Amino acid sequence: MNLKKLFDMQRVLDQRILEKHPELKGQNNLDWKVLALQVELGECANEHRGFKKWSNNQEPRIRALKAPAMMEEDKEYYNPLLEEYVDCLHFILSIGIELGITDIEMWGLQAPDATRCFLKCFENINSLYFVFCVDGQVTQDLYERLFGNFIMLGKSIGFTEEQIESAYFEKNAINHQRQEQGY
């Protein structure tokens, strides 16, 4: 995974958002980015469905129709779980940029079960935010732990680094289009 490229692309998108919303310039934007990441991670868990032990349908949502189509050959599908996952990645990258931590190490990780990975990511997000609130800064190690556990989550739900990177590129382009359209 080309982390430099991902951070560079996210930096461009973040700058574009700041230009569209100048009230965000020069202020701490970590609060809303952390909350957005928590919401997106919850949406990702919801698409994964593995924690829904009360349900007979615990299969991940990996194929959904983009829009209604009259003819079978005109139908387009997408992967809702992967889309929610890369929404999280956008905010994780953006948080790293906000903190000034973009030159990070990736480590090889073994992925435990997805539920534990989701819980670990939530724990990492909360720890990062707590440390920031108490100390006013976050260590690179703490951010790398969040990033590494998030990548481990992706592996635990069946994504390769190539799939993640490709989906990030696609969603980043959509996010730029949304800024053009006044989303």
Rank of each mutant, 00 (worst) to 15 (best):
C117Q: 14
P112Q: 03
L89M: 13
A114Q: 08
I101P: 10
T102H: 03
I97P: 04
E73L: 00
D74C: 11
L99T: 01
T115I: 15
E123H: 08
G108E: 15
E123N: 06
L65N: 03
K75I: 11
M71F: 14
E76G: 02
A64D: 14
G100R: 11
I101S: 05
E72H: 03
E105T: 15
N124A: 08
E72I: 02
L89W: 12
L81N: 03
F91Y: 08
G108A: 09
N124P: 00
D103M: 09
P68H: 03
L81W: 07
Y85N: 01
T115L: 15
E83T: 10
A69F: 02
A64V: 10
G108I: 09
K120E: 14
F118R: 09
D113T: 01
L119F: 05
H90N: 04
L81G: 08
G96I: 07
K66F: 09
G96V: 06
T102W: 05
T115V: 15
T115E: 15
Y77S: 04
I97Y: 04
M106D: 08
F118H: 07
I101D: 01
M71A: 14
C121L: 04
P112R: 07
Q110T: 15
I92G: 04
L119Q: 08
D74V: 02
E73T: 02
F118C: 12
S94M: 00
W107Q: 14
E83V: 03
V86P: 07
E123C: 01
G100Y: 13
T115K: 02
D113S: 09
A69P: 01
M70S: 10
L109S: 14
A64I: 02
E98C: 10
L119I: 07
N124D: 14
I125P: 00
E105N: 13
G108T: 12
I101N: 03
E105R: 12
L119V: 10
M106F: 08
D103V: 13
L119W: 02
A69N: 07
A64Y: 06
F122H: 10
E105A: 15
G108Q: 11
M71G: 05
K66L: 15
Q110K: 15
L99G: 05
N79G: 12
L81D: 03
C121V: 15
I101R: 02
M71Q: 12
E76A: 12
I97A: 10
E105Q: 11
P68L: 05
I101H: 06
E123Y: 10
C117H: 11
E98Q: 12
C121A: 04
L99Y: 03
K120I: 04
G100K: 14
K120Y: 01
L65Q: 06
Y77H: 08
T115C: 07
P68A: 07
R116I: 09
I104L: 14
P80Y: 11
C88W: 10
Y85S: 06
M70Q: 14
M106N: 07
I97N: 13
I101C: 08
C88G: 14
E73M: 06
T102L: 04
E98Y: 05
E83D: 12
E72C: 00
Y78W: 13
D74S: 13
I101F: 09
F122Y: 12
